[in-house]
Design a binder for these strands. Structure first.
Lengths: 219, 219
DNA sequence: AGAAGTATGTTGAATTTTCAACACAATGAG
DNA sequence: CTCATTGTGTTGAAAATTCAACATACTTCT
């Protein structure tokens, strides 16, 4: 557990909680650590949404596959970020998404009911945890709005350009890497992969961007 | 203020808070009540996201208009429901959506900073309010996921059918009203209005549904 | 080095959406 | 009642997406 202290302290769930109390609290909450290989399922759609997940190393993807087999990538979480906390806090009986490891990853899982409902030891940090969860959920909503702003666009080109401009803004540079391969980017933007590839080539020919693999430069 | 007590008690923000305390709290929070005519703007995009809104009568729409003039309807809130709380809780400097009255409406506005940061009177209900906000934000995320599941579909027909099936499930009947006119439904599903009309006619001809104005029957 | 598998780009045909324009019904104001 | 406005359905042409199939790189494994 101590091995991951540094990353846990950066986690929004534990904001304003000092090291000593953090360790005690994790025991009290029954936190456990698990490891997953690349592409392995951490939480499968349809299961009860019990756990708040924290990425300790690696990264995870939140996705859904619809009736027709189309995959949507809904979000990505990297080290220090939470996943599944929205469904766990809403106490839904079945989680509507699947969460997989994007690469070999270590995650911490905390039973959400231990966070929401005061434990018998009354360890006294629930109020801060609930405040932190509230802030986290609010910023998740913002992120979701940003994604919706991109996918609401009508054409592949507009979706792609809004996404790239957003990434450029986020990294503060015209030159940046994206965390997706082509198929994943297509699934994130909710468009056809081959059409996306064609559109990238077109933008390249028009001198609007340069790209190589998952590195992009906006001109 | 007393006039709206009944609806305020149903509001998720005030869950677990009794009448007497509710009234005192509203004063302490500096809650104010405003009225808006149909189609009037309650909160305009770009303004600071200061307020938690509560619909007292009527209903409001959360929407955004993009660069090209396409409107997206993101959500609807009816009496007793909250709006804008996600942005206020995230303390973003500019709200990325516009919120308008869908019909003549009365709303209560509460400065979110009064809720998040303990007031000098220490009226003692902040913990409950923050818990309630956390639960509300979690269920907003669920609702947002449901909308995303609909708009992620690739064709107008699939979007429309998922929407209608969802409404049927929600009302528990194959016969139901929707809260949108055609243009609004198109903006909610993020498709072209005329294409949507054509698709509804087609489904009607195929015997899959009956519809008249905003009333639908799935067969 | 060679083989197998994965990722990416390309193409053309079929499908679907968007867009603009118009007809007609319903609504509301004077 | 009439006129003007708004909402809805229809159509055809243009544009864009999807889909399937394939060529070519790039990886990974032995």
């Amino acid at each position: 557990m101590k091995k991951y202290l540094k990353i846990l302290q950066q986690c929004p769930l534990f904001s304003q909680i000092d090291t000593e109390n953090l360790l005690r609290m994790l025991t009290c909450l029954g936190a456990r650590i698990e490891m997953f290989d690349k592409k392995y399922t951490i939480i499968a759609e349809g299961n009860p949404a019990k756990y708040i997940g924290i990425v300790l190393t690696g990264s995870v993807q939140v996705m859904r596959i619809d009736y027709y087999g189309n995959r949507s990538i809904l979000a990505e979480a990297e080290a220090g970020e939470l996943f599944g906390e929205d469904f766990a806090c809403a106490e839904v009986s079945a989680i509507p998404v699947t969460i997989i490891a994007n690469e070999p990853s270590t995650v911490m899982l905390i039973d959400c009911s231990h966070v929401l409902h005061t434990c018998t030891n009354n360890c006294g940090f629930h109020q801060q945890l609930i405040f932190n969860l509230m802030k986290d959920l609010a910023s998740k909503t913002i992120a979701f709005h940003q994604k919706a702003e991109i996918t609401a666009k009508r054409t592949t080109r507009e979706k792609l350009m809004s996404y790239l401009l957003f990434q450029a803004k986020k990294t503060g540079s015209h030159s940046f890497d994206i965390p997706f391969d082509r198929q994943e980017l297509a699934d994130y933007l909710e468009v056809d992969r081959s059409g996306l590839s064609a559109e990238i080539s077109k933008l390249r020919r028009e001198g609007i961007l340069k790209s190589e693999k998952n590195h992009f430069v906006l001109l």
